[in-house]
Structures are given as C-alpha cells and as structure tokens.
C-alpha cells in the first residue's frame, strides 16, 4: 500500500507563512469524511515540520510529504476522528 491516496480536499497555502497553513488545515479538516486525505500545499519551510507536528499533537495521521515541481510540498494528512 505505497500508493498515494487521492486527496478529498486540497488546501492551497502556497505563499502563506506559518502558522497560517496550520490554521487553514485545522479549520478545514472537518470538511472531509473520516479517513479521507487532505493535501496542504505549502512552501514555507516551517510547514514541512509543522504539519506533521500538528498531526502528532492532534492525533491525525501524516501520510507523507511530496515535493512540488514548482517548489514547496503537498503534505498529506488523513483525518482520524
């Protein structure tokens, strides 16, 4: 099961500085069904650490972080509850 699950929602936080990408994620994760994946697009280097750290604190699952061709990452989070 290494295949990347298609995100149910993509949050475009490109160009936004932390903590804004995290605030957007916290607000919008409840828009997707349980076990669905949210992709956060971000290019603030802080987001690369902060999204997985948020998942740990909030007991959601950090699925993976994938580099975007234009810079930044798509950081995938699975809604756990």
């Amino acid at each position: 099961m290494t295949e990347v699950t298609q995100p149910a929602l993509t949050i475009d936080a490109l160009g936004k500085k932390c903590p804004i990408p995290i605030i957007m994620l916290a607000e919008q994760i409840n828009y997707v069904p349980l076990n669905a994946v949210v992709a956060v697009l971000a290019d603030d280097p802080a987001a690369y650490t902060d999204v997985p750290a948020w998942c740990r604190l909030k007991s959601h699952r950090h699925v993976g972080s994938y580099e975007l061709p234009e810079g930044g990452w798509a950081i995938h989070v699975r809604r756990n509850y």
Partner: peptide, 24 residues
C-alpha cells in the same frame, strides 16, 4: 526559535530536527 522572529526566515534547525512545532 520561530522562523518569523529570526533573521533567516528559516525555522530553528533544533526544532526542525526534533520534529516539533516551529511556530508559536
């Protein structure tokens, strides 16, 4: 150690290495 408070605009390498929140 948050990035916006440092001159570099990069978060603290310590917080990054620990994998903890770098903001706030």
């Amino acid at each position: 150690g948050s990035s916006c408070t440092a001159s570099t605009l990069r978060p603290s390498h310590v917080l990054e290495a620990m994998g903890v929140l770098t903001h706030g």
